[in-house]
Each structure stands twice: as C-alpha cells, then as structure tokens.
Computed example of a mutant assay.
Amino acid sequence: MKRLTYRKAAVQWAEALPLGNGRIGAMHYGGVERELFQLNEDTLWSGPPNRDRSYDDKESLRKVRQLIDEQKYGEATDETKNMFGPYAQGYMPLGDLMIHHFQGNDCRRYERMLNIEEAISSIVYHWSGPTAW
C-alpha cells in the first residue's frame, strides 16, 4: 500500500493532506479533539466582476487557441488572464469544516495517513479516556 503517514496533526496548510476530485477539494489537518478540513471549490473566484473591460473575450480566446497551436504555452497562459480580469484566481477557499470530538487531546500512537492508492485520508490513535460520557 502506498501511503503518507505522519505522527502528529498538521499545523500549517503545507502539512495538511490534500483531498479532492478536481472540482471540490479539502486540506485535512487531522487532530484528536478537533479535526480541521479547509474546503475549496472550482467555481469560487477571487476579485469582483469587471464590467469596465478594455479587451474582447472572443479575441482573447482566438489568440489563446492560436498560441496553443504554435506550442507557445506560456504566452497562451498569459493571454487567458485577459479573459478573467485582474486578480482572478480559481479554487478559492469555501470555508473551514471543524469537527469537535469533545474527548480531550490526550492520546498515544497517533497516525494521520493518506492512502494514495485508495484516495482515503484517516486518523488512528489510542485514547485511554472514559468510555461513557
């Protein structure tokens, strides 16, 4: 089994485990008492709609296609930015999903894993607290 394994919860975004299907995604931080999933989605864009545009989307698309045909991929990428306006970036944050377990943070043998073959993120730990609430 191919997997990434960590012995503690993620503290920063770059340590979290990436999950998603290409349209919607999450970064799984893990945790014992509190698990954090930072969500994003492909239809969320930065920047306001720009009504005062000095360019033509159809003309930009024609240029992009021509540049791709000429294998000028960097220039084609730059030209696509004209169609989005300033500060446009996709997959912006949708929100944080926080799961509170209300059991305390005391555990041992913590493992946070991402099974790459099955695309499953999981957390396993041993907790010796009370069994009844």
Rank of each mutant, 00 (worst) to 15 (best):
A76F: 06
Q71N: 15
W45R: 10
N105I: 08
A119Q: 14
P48M: 09
W45H: 07
R109M: 11
I24Q: 15
W127L: 02
Q71L: 15
K63E: 13
Q103Y: 11
L61R: 11
M92K: 04
S122P: 00
T77E: 13
E35K: 02
L94K: 14
P18C: 07
G129Q: 08
V11R: 13
A88K: 14
Y110D: 04
Y91D: 10
K2W: 03
G22Y: 10
S122V: 00
K72T: 07
W127N: 10
L44M: 09
I68N: 05
P18S: 03
R51M: 00
N50T: 02
A76M: 05
G25R: 14
R3H: 01
Y125G: 01
L36G: 00
A26Y: 04
D96R: 12
I123E: 09
E111N: 08
Y91V: 10
G20V: 12
M98G: 03
E59I: 07
K2Q: 08
H28P: 00
E15T: 02
N21C: 13
I120F: 00
Q12S: 13
Y87D: 15
F102N: 13
K8F: 10
T80R: 09
H126D: 14
L4W: 04
E111L: 09
I24K: 14
A88G: 14
G31S: 04
A132R: 08
P49Q: 03
P86K: 11
V32K: 03
L4T: 07
L114T: 01
Q66N: 06
L67H: 08
D96G: 05
G90I: 08
G104N: 12
G20A: 12
R65S: 06
D69P: 01
E79Y: 03
Y6D: 02
R112V: 03
S60P: 01
A16W: 06
R109L: 14
E75H: 03
G25L: 09
N82C: 05
P48N: 07
G95I: 05
S54E: 03
R34N: 08
G85C: 07
E79A: 12
I120N: 00
I123Y: 01
M1V: 09
G47P: 01
I24E: 15
D57G: 02
D96Y: 09
M83I: 13
